[in-house]
Design a binder for these strands. Structure first.
Lengths: 177, 177
DNA sequence: AAGTACATGTAAGTGGTTACATGATTCT
DNA sequence: AGAATCATGTAACCACTTACATGTACTT
């Protein structure tokens, strides 16, 4: 489905950047709903260049070495907008090892079962704390035309997701008695 | 990480079944947190047989042809329980195309943006309806030692997830003005 | 002298999907 | 006669991860 392609095009549509910058974006902002390692990004950029969706200029980096600054082409931008407006088919399964374990939890002795759920509870609680801290960086809801608007929406979604998971785990623990 | 292996072992630990039965389990009960096609299941069963985690007996099926009924071995059961009690490392990203599109939604004209969110809202609403219908099959909370206990917990989790997504999408739509 | 951040790439392997392939039985 | 369900498998391909590989510059 070439989703990585569109994630990259979307970012380059916001501003020109290097493969390294893209990697940083995936690690920070997009990490709540997409990820990509540099070993996937660089080959994809090469492919996108060949296909004419992006182009780059070579510049010396802050240190001596060369770096490639990529920007989206008109063709790439059209392709990206087409994808963005196209229908999103219902996705298969967000695979979740933790839920898989909880599904099978009746096989464990009561103590281990409790530990499994409480461990998840701790992990999601600290994750939520971290996300709420990120949210303080927004002093107001960004304008709906600004690039930060999407940031704000998905951060809100991530916070709500963590709150929901925590509530679910608490209910599960309660049912164990 | 061999997660499919443990999903299969967990199911065979509940009761013996064929590859086809396993496929049906993935399609129905497990679909909220794991999935696997028959093209992945059959080779995995072959591998697990070679490794000694499972074994099978051949029986004629309801029609004439032969079928393989798999069961878990003592070795497989030990391996499964070890996995179940082992620590669950925080998972990377549940990749989500829909959130990716919402992240970039400021690139779309107001009308298309609204359509994108409302389309998701419809899909998640009908999904929630379907899940709530499934829940009516439980007349009471199953005993925490029964196989259906896990079923119940993950179904509750799936319902809460859909409710959360719907609430989030509504908030997003409200922010568009 | 060692570690981190910037910067870019390739190779091998895992996990998963789609398509190919076959065959019996039951239902419409 | 045609479609759906049961039943099992393989092959090609795609997406992604881990490890290999290199080099600069700045910081401790």
């Amino acid at each position: 489905m070439r989703t990585l392609k569109y994630a990259i095009l979307g970012l380059l549509n916001q501003k020109e950047m290097t493969g390294y910058d893209l990697m940083k974006q995936f690690e920070s902002t997009l990490c709540e709903f997409w990820s990509a390692k540099h070993s996937q990004i660089y080959p994809e950029l090469k492919k996108l260049t060949e296909e004419g969706s992006v182009a780059y200029k070579t510049e010396p980096s802050d240190n001596g070495a060369e770096k490639k600054i990529y920007h989206i082409t008109e063709e790439g931008r059209r392709d990206f907008i087409d994808w963005l407006s196209s229908e999103t088919k219902p996705q298969p399964t967000p695979k979740d090892i933790s839920r898989l374990k909880i599904f099978f939890c009746n096989c464990l002795p009561a103590e281990d079962r409790k530990f499994l759920l409480e461990d998840q509870l701790h992990k999601h609680s600290s994750r939520l704390k971290h996300l709420r801290n990120n949210q303080t960086k927004f002093t107001a809801v960004p304008d709906s035309e600004a690039d930060e608007f999407g940031d704000y929406l998905v951060l809100m979604g991530a916070i709500m997701r963590e709150e929901m998971v925590i509530e679910w785990l608490r209910k599960c623990l309660a049912l164990l008695g």
